[in-house]
Structure formats: structure tokens, C-alpha cells
Design a protein around this nucleic acid. Structure first.
Lengths: 239, 239
DNA sequence: ACCTGAACACCGTTCAAGT
DNA sequence: ACCTGAACACCGTTCAAGT
């Protein structure tokens, strides 16, 4: 008679049962609202008004929950047109975009997908496991754009990896800042000024000159700059 | 009389005392040998033959231990010549290297530094906090090479960020594989073959063609490829 | 000043028992 | 089949007490 909120035994008829999907949805909510550390099996069970052990009937352990969340994020990240049948997939505007612009658009979408759940980004980037088929489907737009650039299969493969690595590294920094920790770029100036003189002379000089012209760093322009560089590098190697 | 290995009270004269450095060294050993999950305050104290609470006199909490480890890794990563005085720092061979080759060499050294402690890579990349001055000193070789390329301060800043983001993303994938999880590139072929047909047509076709020519992926060549692309991109934007 | 012991408020997970 | 209660073997950390 204690714990009136807790059901016991089999659920009442017509009541929604516990399911892998319901568990993952609740877990994602906790992570989005309170961060990754707030996600514990006991806490998760409590929000579902269920015994902690009930979860283990739908997911084998906690790391399966985390892997499931990573999968959810990548599922959202898979572009809508990929779900449509093969041929009619390319939207009208895509036809008039250069392959460079297509590649950049794909990269922006990928980054935005990772930003949708900042508290989970680290987990997703680290644990690219479990992601099953979902994560590879995510790479389709990159391959499509690079295919139009007339690269060889090997070159497409390597160019896609390079671009994705850049996005991952960038997103890592971006996620770290959101997680209230330090990041290389924005705090750079302050840090450099604290360095012992002579420790990094070129860095000190360049950053000093940057400061004079008034450096306004933001992630969006940083991303665009990197994207332009990587794309130009791919184009340069193509010729 | 129980726990004969445990000292109690003040340490005997002449015996080495507990210190922040001794704690971090022991912690790094545990992480290198048994992985990041094996590092607990209690376990750490046990290997130091000390009460768990003794650690808290030298480090405020566990995350300070992890931050300290990240700092250790970056300290090893700082190039030796940076410690020398400013002017005479550049070694003889550097003078004959092109800025591109200097940049690539710096990138290789940075990657190798991150690989030195694979079990810690994720922590280091995620928690770039705490790294204090150590991490920014790490960027000096990149700035030195880019400065020789004749870029503007702003361009140097952005190019360095882009290259470092690429290395971080690449190292993340590399570390994940060592941590026995899945990574995008090597397992790609197997994964693609399991995709529902029509889900990612270009990807499927390209990877299929890759398989025919016999794809042998390894991280070293993947890194070199990405490095060449990013460097070419920087050079292309320079002109 | 530095170290310790006991205690608090948590964890993830196993296992046997309920309906 | 699905859910539960109690229990096990851990955690990080606070606090008061020892030397």
C-alpha cells in the first residue's frame, strides 16, 4: 500500500506497456533536460513509475540504453529523402547546386543533427557502436555529392571520411563548450596571455595581432571556414 | 593489525609522501593498463596503499583527477623545442621543410601524442577543460608552420582550428576502435551490405566498387589522406 | 598538516519470488 | 511473460576523530 504510484504485477488491460521505445524516449528526455550524468537506471525507472529491474526485460544493461540513445540521434539525422525510393529521391534544388554546395549542405545538416541533443553529443561521437545500419545511411548524402564531383570510389571514400572527421572534431569542441567546459578557440586569447613568455612565441604574436583587429569568434563562422577549407582541399586533389 | 600493508597516521620519516603528482601517475597507470572505467577513487587509493580519503587532500574530487590526467597527456604532447628559448628553437631540418610539410609533421606529432594513451583519448578530447596553459602551448607548431605560409592572423587562426578539429575527429574514431567498439570507416563495407536496398543507393554502389578493387583500410593511410586534403584546402584558400 | 574510519546516499545488476 | 523486492558488491564524498 505504500508507493501508490507504482503498479505491481501485470499492467492493467489497455494500459500502455513498458517497451524499449518508451524507455529510450524517457531516457532521452532525462539526458536532454538534466545531462548525461542524471541518467541512471534507477532514475529512469522512477520516471517511468516502474521498478528498476523492469528495464532489464527490454534492454540488457545500461550501455545498451546509451547505445540506443545514440541510435535515436542518428535516426533523426538520416535525411528524409533517404527514406523515399531510390531514383526520385534528389529534390529539385539539388540538381542546380554544385557538388561543393551539396557537400556543404550535407555537412551542415549532419552538424545540426548532432547539435539537436548537445548533452548526448559526446556519447554519440564516442560510442559510434551499436548504431547499426542507421549510422551508415547517414553517409549517403556525402557520397552522393562526392560522386557528382567525378572522384574515384577510393577518393570518395577518403574524402567522406575526412569531412566526417572534421565535423566530429568540430562538434566535440562545440559540445564541450555547451557542457560548460573549456574549448580551444574562444578562450584562446585569454589563455595565451597567461602563457610564460617565450613558451609559444608565434602563437602569442599571432593571437596578439588577432586581438587588435577585434576577434569575434562564433561557432557558425568557424564551421563555415573549416567546411570551405575541407571542400577546397577535396576539389584541389580532384584536379 | 589487520591490513598490514596500510600505514596509518603520519608517514615515516624519509618515506615518500602522497602528492598530487604521485596520485596522477598511479591513476595514469591504471587507465593505461585497465581502461578508464577501472579508475575509481577507492581503487586508486588501494594501489597507493592509502585510505581513499587521503586523496582528497591533494585533489578536490574525481573530476580533478581526470582533468589532471588530460593535462599530463597534453604536457607530453607539447613539443620539446617549445621549452627552449624562442629564437634558437627551430631545428635545422625545419628550415628546409615547406610549410605544408611542417604542418603535416606537427599534425602527425599531435596525433601520436593522443595515441600514446588510447584509453584516455576520449577523456582528453572531451574534457579539454582544466588543460590550462598546457593545451594552448600545444598549438605553437601549427601556428609556426601557418605563419610561414604567409596567411593573415585570422586565416592562421581558422586554419589551425580546422586542422585540429580534423585530428580530434580522426583520433576519436581511432580511439573508439581501440576501445573495441565500432568505427565508421573499417566496418563500413560490412555494414553497407546489411542495409535495406534503396536506403542509400550511392553509398551502396560506391562501397561495392571499392570492394571489387580490394579495399585495405588502415588508420595511417586514412590520416595521411585527410591531412593532405586539409593542407591542400589551406593552400588553395591562401592563393 | 596529513591521514583515517565510519557513515551517507547513492550506483548497476543478479536472483528468486510473485501475478 | 512481465514485473517486483530484497540483496550484493560496489561507487564518490562528508565529517569527526586520530597522530
Amino acid at each position: 500500500m505504500v508507493n501508490p504510484g507504482k503498479r505491481s504485477g501485470r499492467p492493467r488491460a489497455g494500459e500502455e506497456r513498458l517497451s524499449r521505445e518508451a524507455i529510450l524516449t524517457a531516457a532521452l528526455r532525462i539526458v536532454d533536460d538534466e545531462g548525461i550524468d542524471a541518467l541512471t537506471m534507477r532514475r529512469l525507472a522512477a520516471t517511468l513509475q516502474v521498478n528498476p529491474m523492469s528495464l532489464y526485460h527490454h534492454l540488457p544493461n545500461k550501455s545498451a540504453v546509451l547505445a540506443g540513445l545514440a541510435e535515436l540521434v542518428f535516426a533523426d539525422l538520416t535525411p528524409a529523402e533517404a527514406a523515399v525510393s531510390a531514383e526520385a529521391a534528389v529534390p529539385a534544388e539539388a540538381a542546380v547546386m554544385s557538388w561543393q554546395e551539396q557537400l556543404k549542405e550535407s555537412a551542415r545538416a549532419y552538424r545540426n543533427g548532432l547539435r539537436a541533443h548537445p548533452n548526448l553529443a559526446l556519447q554519440v561521437l564516442a560510442d559510434t557502436s551499436a548504431v547499426s545500419g542507421v549510422v551508415v545511411a547517414t553517409m549517403e548524402p556525402f557520397y552522393r555529392a562526392l560522386d557528382q564531383a567525378g572522384l574515384s570510389p577510393r577518393e570518395i571514400f577518403e574524402a567522406a571520411n575526412t569531412l566526417i572527421d572534421f565535423i566530429h572534431g568540430f562538434s566535440l569542441g562545440e559540445a564541450s563548450v555547451r557542457a560548460e567546459t573549456f574549448e580551444l578557440a574562444p578562450d584562446l586569447i585569454a589563455r595565451v596571455n597567461e602563457l610564460p613568455p617565450g613558451k609559444a612565441p608565434t602563437l602569442t604574436r599571432i593571437v596578439g595581432e588577432l586581438g587588435e583587429t577585434g576577434l569575434a569568434y562564433d561557432f557558425d563562422s568557424g564551421f563555415e571556414s573549416g567546411l570551405a577549407t575541407v571542400t577546397a582541399g577535396i576539389a584541389a586533389r580532384q584536379r
